[in-house]
Design a protein around this nucleic acid. Structure first.
Lengths: 369, 369
DNA sequence: GTGAAAGCGCTAACAG
DNA sequence: CTGTTAGCGCTTTCAC
C-alpha cells in the first residue's frame, strides 16, 4: 500500500526535486520559470511535477517576491448592477493581465470600508480599487495613499486626494439633464437619493458623496442659468428602503406646489419611485416626468420607456484596472481618461402639466428663449 | 533625521518585540492572541504595536497555520443580478464569520472555470463555492472534492457528485409553470435559453447545464401529464447575444404553427425576447404569453407586469456560505436545505389566442379536465 | 510565563 | 548551469 493513509500533505518543490534528482533550487527554477536551467533538468522536473501533480503554493511565493498578483476591490454594493458591471470590467481586465481580484462589499458604510481596506492590506494585495463611501471622511484612504500602495478610485472622488479617479463628470450631465427638464417647462423638479445623512437636506450642507453633491450642484447651476430659484425643498436624501422611498415620493408629488418631475439617483431607487407614482394614480409622463441615473436594459421595457442618464460603467472598470496595473508595474500614469455620461431621451419626460389649481402658467413664463 | 529616507519596509513582530523589549515569540503571542502572555507584556507589546502601527502579514500567518480565512467563489457572470444577489448572500455571511471572498468570473466557460479553481487552490483558499459551468465535464471539480478541500455548489449540480448543493428543484417549478401555461390553453410553448451547445436541441441530447436540462424535463413531464406531445421544436438554445435572441424569437413566433407562449430562461435574455415580441407588433399577453426565470424588481414595472419564477437566490448564497464554513470548521453538515422556487403570477400570461388561420380550436380540445 | 530555535514553501543571493 | 545557504514574517515546539 502506498502513502494513502498519510494525511495528504501538499507536495512541495522539495518533493519534486527529490523525485527529479536535482537540487531544490534547480527544481524551483524550473517550476517558477526563472534563472537558468538546462533542458534536461527542466524536463525531468516537469515530468516529476506532473507525476506528483505538484501545485505551487502562491502564498509562499508571494511572501518572497512581495507581490501577490491580487488586487483588492472595495465597492458599496455588488448587488447593484451598476457595480456589477464595473466589477466585471475590473475582473475582465485584471484576469487578462494575470491578476486576481478580492472583492469586498461595504454597504456604503464607512466603518466597513475602513475594515475592508485594512483586511485587504493585511492580505498584501498589490493594489486597491475603491469606490469611496465618503468623500469627506477619508483618513484611511489617505493613509493607504501615503504608504505608497497603488490605488485607484472608481465612480467617485475622495475629497481632493491626488489619486487617479475614474468617474464621470456628474455636475455636467446633471446640468444637461436639468436643462432638458427646464426646457420642457418643469420648475418643480425633485431629486431623490439613498444617500444617508443625519439631517434632511439644507442648502449649504456637506454631503458625504461627491457624486450626489455634484448632481445637486449641476441642478442648481442649470436653474441659475435660467434665472430661476432652485427648489431646495425637493432635494430628498435618506431614501433607504422601499417604504421610505415611497413615502418620500408621495410627499413630493402631493399638494398644490407638487413636483412635476422626479429624478431618481439610481436604478434601485427608481423602481420604488415609479411604483409610488403609479400608486398615486399619476401617469408618466403626462402627470409627472421621470428621469433616472444608469441605463439598465429594463428601462427600455417599461411603458413608457424611461429617459435615463447612461454612464460608461464597464469602461470605467476597465480603465480603473488598467490604471492600477500601470501603477503596480511602476509605469507612469496614462493620460487621464475622460468619462462622459449621456442623456438618453426616451419616453418618460414630457411637457410640464398644468399643476393642480393651474398655477403652471406663470411658471412657464419664466422660461428663457 | 529618523528612518524617513529608508525604503519603508513593513514593520514586523521582530520590530514590535524590540520596541517592547520582549522576545519575538512573546510579541507574536500577544499580537496573535494565543499562548500565555502576562498582562504586563501584553500591554507593552500592544502599545509598541500601536506606536509602530504594526499590521500582521496575513500571508505569513496563513503559511504557518495553513488557513487563509478566505473562500473562493466561482460564478458564471456577476453582471447578472442573479449571481450578484447570490454573491451578496455569500459575502455577507462570510464576513460575519470572519472570512474573505475571492471572486472569479468564468463567463460560463469550462476552461475558465478549470483555471479559476486552480488559481484559487494555489492561493490556498480554505474552501470553494462554485456554480458549475458544466454538470457533465466535472473532472476538475471531482479532483478538488477528492483532495478533501471543502466545497459547496450553488445554483446547479455537477453530475451526481456527492457535494452539498444549494439549488432549487428546477424540474418541479418548471412543471408547475408549464401546467399553468397549459391550463391557459397554450400548446405551443417555446423555451429560450442562452445555453451554448454544438448543435441545435434534439430530444435525447446531453445538456451541459443541469438547470436547463431539468427545466426542459419539467416541461416535458407537464405535457405528458396532460397527454400531449411536447413541442421539442420550440426548445431553442444558443440564444447568446441580442441579435440571436431576437432572431430566435422571431422564428418561433412566426408562421401558422407559431408559439403562443414563450419562456425565457433568465432575466438578461428576457429583455431581448420581450423587445422582439414588441417589434413583431405582437402584444403580451393578448397575442403571446410570456414567462421568465428570476424575479427582478423591474419585472413589476413593465406593462403588463411580468409573470416570473422567483428563486431564493440570496438565501441560497447564505446557505452555501454557511454550509461551506461548517465544512471548513470540521462540523458535520446541517440538514440539507430545501429551496423552492415560486411562480409569481402577474400579467404576462393570458389565455391562448386563436392562432393565425384559427387552428387553435382543435388544439384546445386536447385539454384535460 | 518566557525565550531560543526550528520550520512553513518558496525565492534569491552566492559561490562553484 | 548548478547546488548551498539564507532568509520572507509568522507560529510552534521545547526547554527553562
Amino acid at each position: 500500500m502506498s502513502a494513502e493513509g498519510a494525511r495528504r500533505r501538499d507536495v512541495t518543490v522539495a518533493d519534486v526535486a527529490k523525485a527529479a534528482q536535482v537540487s531544490k533550487a534547480q527544481a524551483a527554477r524550473a517550476l517558477g520559470n526563472y534563472g537558468a536551467v538546462s533542458d534536461d533538468v527542466r524536463e525531468r522536473v516537469q515530468a516529476a511535477a506532473e507525476a506528483l501533480s505538484y501545485r505551487p503554493n502562491e502564498l509562499a511565493r508571494s511572501m518572497n517576491t512581495g507581490k501577490s498578483h491580487t488586487i483588492g476591490v472595495v465597492v458599496g454594493d455588488i448587488e447593484n448592477p451598476h457595480f456589477g458591471l464595473a466589477t466585471r470590467g475590473i475582473t475582465d481586465t485584471a484576469k487578462k493581465a494575470g491578476y486576481n481580484v478580492i472583492l469586498v462589499n461595504t454597504d456604503e458604510d464607512r466603518e466597513a470600508e475602513v475594515d475592508a481596506v485594512r483586511v485587504l492590506l493585511d492580505k498584501r494585495v498589490d493594489g486597491l480599487i475603491v469606490a469611496p463611501a465618503s468623500s469627506v471622511d477619508t483618513g484611511h484612504l489617505q493613509e493607504v495613499h501615503r504608504s505608497g500602495r497603488p490605488m485607484v478610485f472608481i465612480d467617485r472622488t475622495a475629497g481632493d486626494m491626488p489619486v487617479e479617479t475614474m468617474a464621470v463628470d456628474m455636475a455636467r450631465i446633471s446640468r444637461e439633464a436639468t436643462r432638458y427638464l427646464l426646457d420642457a417647462g418643469h420648475r418643480r423638479i425633485a431629486f431623490i437619493s439613498t444617500l444617508r445623512t443625519n439631517a434632511p437636506y439644507t442648502p449649504g450642507m456637506t454631503l458625504e458623496s461627491s457624486q450626489i453633491a455634484d448632481r445637486i450642484e449641476g441642478m442648481r447651476e442649470a436653474f441659475l442659468e435660467y434665472g430661476l430659484a432652485f427648489p431646495e425643498d425637493l432635494v430628498r436624501l435618506n431614501a433607504g428602503d422601499e417604504d421610505s422611498i415611497r413615502s418620500i415620493t408621495r410627499e413630493v408629488l402631493r399638494g398644490p406646489d407638487r413636483a412635476t418631475a422626479a429624478v431618481a439617483s439610481d436604478g434601485l431607487i427608481a423602481l420604488s419611485v415609479v411604483e409610488a407614482i403609479q400608486e398615486l394614480g399619476l401617469s408618466i409622463p403626462a402627470d409627472v416626468s421621470f428621469l433616472m441615473y444608469d441605463d439598465f436594459a429594463w428601462t427600455r421595457l417599461t411603458t413608457p420607456p424611461l429617459t435615463v442618464i447612461a454612464q460608461p460603467v464597464y469602461n470605467m472598470g476597465v480603465a480603473a484596472a488598467k490604471a492600477l496595473i500601470r501603477q503596480m508595474e511602476g509605469l507612469p500614469p496614462a493620460a487621464p481618461a475622460q468619462f462622459t455620461a449621456t442623456l438618453v431621451r426616451r419616453g418618460s419626460v414630457g411637457p410640464c402639466p398644468a399643476t393642480t389649481g393651474k398655477p403652471g402658467r406663470e411658471q412657464l413664463a419664466g422660461k428663457p428663449a
